[in-house]
Amino acid sequence: MATELGPTPVKEPASGGAPIHHKPKGVGEDNAIASQGKWAAWLLAPTIFALAIVIVYPIISAIVMSFQKDAGLDPATGLFTEGGPAGFSNYTNWIFQQCAAPDGGTVACPPGTLGAQFWSATGTTFYFTIITVTLETILGFWMAIIMARTFRGRSLVRAAVLVPWAIPTAVTAQLWLFIFAFEGIGNKLFNTTILWTGSEIPARWAVIIADTWKTTPFMALLILAGLQMIPAEVYEAAKVDGASAWQRFRMITLPLVKPALMVAILFRTLDALRMFDLPYILTEGSNNTTTLSILVVNQIRQGFNSAAALSTITFIIIFIVAFIFVRFLGANVVEQQTGAGKGKK
C-alpha cells in the first residue's frame, strides 16, 4: 500500500535517483549520491546494531542451542552434566515423537511426556488458527462496514469496539475463566451444566470464543482502514450505472479492500499460530488445547536445548505459512503495485 510515497528517499539513489533531481545527470551527481548512501548507512547503523542484539543474536543462539543435548544427570554425583553436541537428534526426536529410553536408546514417547504431544499440538494450533481467523475475518468485515458508515455516535462505536483489543490477553483469559467456570455466569445464563474447561470440545470452543471476542476488533480496524481508502466517487459512478448494493460490494469493495484484507489476515494468522496466553490460562493446555507455544514453554522447564529445537520448528512452520500467504495469496498485491508503478513512468 502506498509504497511509492514511502518516506524513505534514502532508498531512491540505489535505484537511479533520477526522479529526485531535475538537473541533468552530471559528474558531481554520482559523488553526491554515493555520499548520501554512505550517510544513510551510518544513520541506519544504530538501528541495525539494536536489531542485531535483540533479534539476530537470540535467533542464532537458539539455533546453536538446538544442536546441543540437554544436560543429563551423572548418577554417581547426582549432578547435571553438559549434554554435548546432539546433531539433529533434538529435531528428529520431536518430529518422530521419540523419547530417551532408560537403557540409552530411544522409544516412542509414552503418553505423559511432552514429546508425545508434538503432532497433536501442531494439529491444535492449526485448528485454532483456521477457525479463529475465519470467524474474525467475517465478523471483522461486518463490523468494519458498519463503522465505515456515517452515523451519529460513530466515533463512540469505534472507540467501544476497541475495548476488547485494548485489554491485555492475560486479563481477558482470566475474565473468560470466570465466565466459563462451572458455577460461572456462562452456565448460569444459559442454564447449562457444561464443563467448559473440563472436556475436549467445550474447552476448544472456550478458547475460540475468547480469542474471537478479543481479536475481532483488530481485524475490523485493519479492514476499516482499507475501506476508507476507497474513494466515494467510485461508488457514486457505480450507482449512476445502476449497480446493485451486492454488485457494488462484490465488484468494488472486495477487490479494492483486498490488499488491506490480505495483510490483516496474514497478521492474524501469524499471531494465531503463536497463540499461548489464552489457552494457557483458560485450560493449562488440558483437553487437547495445547498449542505449539505452550509446548515450548513447558519444554523450557525440562530442558532448554530441546525447547530451542522446538521453537525453531515452530518458527519454520510459521515461516512456511507466511511464505505461502505472500507467494500465492498476496502475489496479486505485489503485481498490481509494480504494474501501477510502471504505468506512471
Binding site: 530417551a100 529410553a101 532408560p102
Partner: peptide, 13 residues
Amino acid sequence: DMQKSIESASAGQ
C-alpha cells in the same frame, strides 16, 4: 504410562 514417562524423562539423553 506414568511409569514409562518418568523413566524416559529421567533417562537423560
